[in-house]
Amino acid sequence: MPSRHSIAAPPVKGGAAPAGSRPVGSAPEDERQRAKLSRRWQRDLRWSPYAFVAPFFLLFIAFGLFPLLYTGWASLHSVELTAPTDMEWAGLKNFTRIFDDEFFWNAARNTLFIGIVSTVPQLAMAMGIAHLLNYKLRGSTFWRVSMLAPYATSVAAATLVFVLLFGRDYGMINWALDFLGINPVDWQAGWASKIAVSTIVIWRWTGYNALIYLAAMQAIPHDLYESAALDGASRWRQFFHVTLPSLRPTILFTVVVSTIGATQIFGEALLFDASKGASGGSEHDFQTLGLYLYEQGWVNQHLGRASAIAWTMFAILIVIGLVNSVISRRLRTSS
């Protein structure tokens, strides 16, 4: 049961070779043989790690590094998509202008809001569903597969359906609201639009995260619950005092992955109101950073500006990543 060997903390650090610990023979020939072996051994220990990571880095250098360096270089220039090689030095202007680019900060706020609104309920619901799926169920595979089905849908296909469902005048959701006596909502403007875009993200990912949580729940030793039950804890108390604390590492992992995903939300916002191009609503209501970058680069063709936005996003993400790792380290040491 490989997966059930949980949380790291290996007793021996590193995979150091116990070369010297073998029984020693005394014949000189044996000695030479061993020296040869040991040399090969050393070489293997020394170089094979590099050989193992090399393919990734070679591919990365071939197809990842050049784009990265190029956009870095382009971000220091005034350069248009219509002539990507025709660069005019601009220094840090593309970066400094971001400070008073209200559209950038609007996009940053939207990304944050959509990120939170799509991540928090999503993970909370995933947790709830996982809890339910963890009961002894009839047809458990059916439930699990249906939860996962949205994940198979492409962003484009999912967004297309939701655009129709969220239609202001003839969409099903407003029809249902009207049925309940609530006034119809313009789902392509204001706060409602951010919630609508978040809904698409939630729909696609909740089931997937639920299964991850379910897996982690099933790895919690049974006797923890037994002893909690002996202490007279209700099921709810068991959930809060046994299940949740045991899931902490898993929760952290899903939070990190969802955060990165949320920062890069793009397709949903682009297609949610395709009639407005890439501006994400009339008043940039749901324009995310990914979409703003796309608008500047692909629609307005300002390659230099778009590159600077990309690098700024990159920097923000790294900061978030660092904060995240600090927090998780704190949590780990405190537990």
Binding site: S275, S279, S282
Partner: peptide
């Protein structure tokens, strides 16, 4: 195209809202 789009989708449509 960009200018017209701005005037329309980021402009006059707001009057209807």
């Amino acid at each position: 195209q960009i200018i017209q789009q701005g005037l329309t989708d980021n402009g006059v449509i707001l009057v209807t809202k």
